[in-house]
Amino acid sequence: MNYTLHQLQVFLKITETKSITKAAEQLHLTQPAVSIQLKNLQDQFEIPLTEVMGRQLYITEFGKEIALAAENIVNEVNNINYKTLAFKGILAGKLKISVVSTGKYVMPYFLSDFTNNNKGIELEMDVTNKLKVIKALKNNEVDFALVSTLPTGLDVESEVLLSNKLFLVANQNHPIVDPKKTKEFLADSSLIYREDGSATRIAMENYLNKQGIKAKMKLQLTSNEAVKQAVIAGLGLSVMPLIGLKNELENKTIKIIPAKGLPLVTNWTLIWLKGKKMSPAAYAYLDFIKKEKERIKNGNFSWIDSH
């Protein structure tokens, strides 16, 4: 056996993505380079690590066992590197955060100074929908999660970062409506929804139900950006978080439609499992957030208060 650490790292990414193409993209390598590393690793085993059926790549049971061993090896190598840095007085380690999709407009601002000042920190930030974020937190796969509504049935601790306001929005040519006629207006309007599992979708549906509005769904889209573009194009209206609309409001491609019961206000909140034994990197980050969140909020999100 003469496999290399690089081969194991490439194979782990392949098992994670189940795709040569996606693995190459995430590793910033070419597809041929990834394929060669996989072949070189496979040549050292008589049992197949992967198999292709149709156009889909699958990891064999043997491959899954090798991937588990490879993960342990890679983690131990990372620990050696972190300990080396720690002996030099440098904070080091891996910080894992799962973020609901609209939170991508928030989380980077609360990370940049910390990671820039601690070069030994390796950051993994997964941006996905709320259901997957909560699942990752529940399975203890991440240190922290960023959500706009606290999960139920999960014992967590939390730190509020920022208020989250949701407004009814339309494109620039849409007429302003009397807020007293919100129910009739929305019942006759075509609305654009996020996908099932999205916190924005849940908030929008709760609002419509509370107002007794039976709305028409025009579109269902899987990202905040897609919803924005659909609104700008005049395909319909939507209830959206203000945090992702700064440029569009300034450029006047989207406008807020006053409506009864809006805005909805929640909080962007950093959460973690209660009683979690934190790594030095996670503990240091939480300490940073508690000390610096007001400065970060005032320096980057003061515009929110004007709406």
Rank of each mutant, 00 (worst) to 15 (best):
residue 6 H to V: 12
residue 6 H to L: 13
residue 12 L to D: 01
residue 14 I to Q: 04
residue 18 K to A: 11
residue 19 S to M: 09
residue 20 I to Y: 11
residue 22 K to C: 00
residue 22 K to P: 01
residue 23 A to G: 15
residue 25 E to Q: 14
residue 25 E to T: 09
residue 26 Q to K: 15
residue 26 Q to G: 11
residue 28 H to E: 15
residue 29 L to G: 02
residue 30 T to G: 08
residue 33 A to Y: 10
residue 34 V to I: 09
residue 35 S to F: 05
residue 37 Q to W: 00
residue 40 N to D: 09
residue 41 L to C: 03
residue 42 Q to N: 07
residue 42 Q to C: 11
residue 45 F to P: 05
residue 45 F to M: 01
residue 47 I to Q: 11
residue 48 P to M: 04
residue 49 L to K: 03
residue 57 L to S: 01
residue 59 I to N: 02
residue 62 F to D: 09
residue 64 K to C: 04
residue 67 A to I: 00
residue 69 A to I: 07
residue 75 N to S: 04
residue 75 N to L: 10
residue 77 V to R: 02
residue 77 V to H: 04
residue 81 N to V: 14
residue 82 Y to Q: 09
residue 82 Y to W: 12
residue 83 K to Y: 12
residue 83 K to S: 10
residue 85 L to A: 11
residue 85 L to V: 12
residue 87 F to Y: 09
residue 88 K to D: 14
residue 91 L to Q: 10
residue 94 K to Y: 07
residue 96 K to V: 04
residue 97 I to E: 01
residue 98 S to K: 03
residue 109 Y to K: 15
residue 112 S to E: 13
residue 115 T to A: 03
residue 122 E to K: 15
residue 131 L to M: 13
residue 133 V to S: 02
residue 135 K to Y: 02
residue 136 A to C: 06
residue 139 N to W: 04
residue 142 V to F: 09
residue 146 L to M: 07
residue 148 S to G: 10
residue 149 T to Y: 12
residue 150 L to T: 05
residue 154 L to E: 12
residue 161 L to S: 10
residue 163 S to N: 08
residue 164 N to W: 08
residue 165 K to P: 03
residue 167 F to P: 08
residue 169 V to Q: 07
residue 170 A to V: 01
residue 173 N to G: 11
residue 173 N to F: 12
residue 176 I to E: 04
residue 190 S to E: 14
residue 190 S to H: 13
residue 190 S to C: 02
residue 190 S to T: 06
residue 193 Y to V: 00
residue 194 R to D: 02
residue 204 M to Y: 12
residue 207 Y to A: 05
residue 207 Y to K: 13
residue 209 N to I: 15
residue 210 K to G: 06
residue 210 K to E: 06
residue 215 A to R: 01
residue 215 A to E: 08
residue 219 L to A: 00
residue 223 S to L: 03
residue 223 S to E: 03
residue 235 L to K: 09
residue 236 G to I: 03
residue 237 L to D: 01
residue 239 V to K: 11
residue 241 P to M: 09
residue 241 P to W: 11
residue 243 I to V: 13
residue 251 N to T: 13
residue 252 K to Y: 09
residue 254 I to D: 05
residue 255 K to Q: 14
residue 263 P to N: 12
residue 263 P to K: 08
residue 273 L to Y: 10
residue 274 K to T: 15
residue 274 K to C: 08
residue 275 G to A: 06
residue 278 M to R: 14
residue 280 P to H: 03
residue 283 Y to K: 13
residue 284 A to Q: 06
residue 286 L to N: 15
residue 289 I to E: 13
residue 290 K to D: 06
residue 291 K to A: 10
residue 292 E to W: 13
residue 294 E to I: 14
residue 296 I to T: 11
residue 298 N to V: 07
residue 299 G to F: 04
